[in-house]
Design a binder for these strands. Structure first.
Lengths: 158, 158
DNA sequence: GAAGCCTTGTAAGGCTGCCTGACGAACTGG
DNA sequence: CCAGTTCGTCAGGCAGCCTTACAAGGCTTC
């Protein structure tokens, strides 16, 4: 979405648009800070890997499933992260088809930096809107997204 | 973003990821319902017009500015909406360069249907999480996005 | 242990949703 | 009337995702 000023009723800006825009703003903040912290090559598209890879590495398939995108999409991101030195593909000893994606040292540093920025941003949110509100927000959105993935809030109509 | 399960601290799923995912889910819900309501051609990309066009029509430039995207992007969407009968371009009598984009009858019906769906979704949110919470959410996000657009929460670093 | 089916990752190609650059036509101020 | 600006468009490009198709390897069953 991209709605900004339109109101469905007096004083009511659609929550959809607000969610999307604020998410986008926070993304920009995150990657802007990440650039400033010395990771200028990282783009939002890389987040599906950084956000869904396990400590000791994960299979591409697992990352794809957690990120809810296709294996091909993850594979492309992984190849680029590999190319720029953030990730390595090591063969899975237990399955010769599979490769384990694992962050390199630089990759882990970037991930840590990302989480540090996220925590800073969330502290700012807590200062601005109250800790309780932010916690309630997180809880509500966790619930909503969990519902959406699982037994449907209203999608899955197609 | 696309984070789903990762936590920055025990029990803390990043708000960024939650915002983005819930926005996406609500988008899907919206356009799924819109399809079901008889507007199958409408895609999320069209929202920048539907969400930022005035009652009597608006100039492409104004829509672009409100949606915070380029005129070219809006122009493309407008052309498609025109082609499928949701929009018309009428010459601006006060400026021969400009054209006023105005929803056709069908376009307005679609817009109304969209807002009806949004209201329904928000009613559901209010039932699930409480009216007060939804209002607080809207207020906070309005504030956050307004800050982001105007005097910067943290972006504009690039 | 071979046949048939499922999974893992990849290759190829396509679409959407944006962007930048360049432009002609029209408006505006001096 | 001329310079500079603004309106919309054309052309081209790129990111981020998808679908289809496939080879290589694993799993089951007899």
């Amino acid at each position: 979405m991209s709605s900004k000023l339109i109101e469905t009723a007096p004083g009511r800006v659609p929550v959809v648009g607000l969610l999307n825009r604020s998410g986008q703003l926070m993304d920009e903040r995150l990657f802007s800070d990440l650039r400033a912290a010395g990771y200028p090559e990282l783009r939002p598209g890389h987040a599906c890997v950084f956000g869904n890879i396990g400590r000791g590495g994960s299979r591409l398939t697992d990352i794809a499933e957690r990120a809810q995108i296709t294996k091909q999409a993850v594979g492309e991101v992984a190849s680029e992260l590999e190319r720029i030195g953030y990730l390595e593909r090591i063969p899975d000893p237990t399955d010769k088809r599979a490769k384990i994606l694992r962050l390199t040292k630089r990759g882990q540093e970037a991930q840590d930096a990302g989480y540090a920025i996220i925590q800073r941003v969330e502290r700012e949110l807590a200062e601005a809107y109250g800790v309780d509100f932010v916690n309630a927000l997180r809880a509500a959105l966790e619930d909503y997204t969990a519902l959406g993935v699982g037994h449907a809030v209203g999608r899955h109509a197609a």
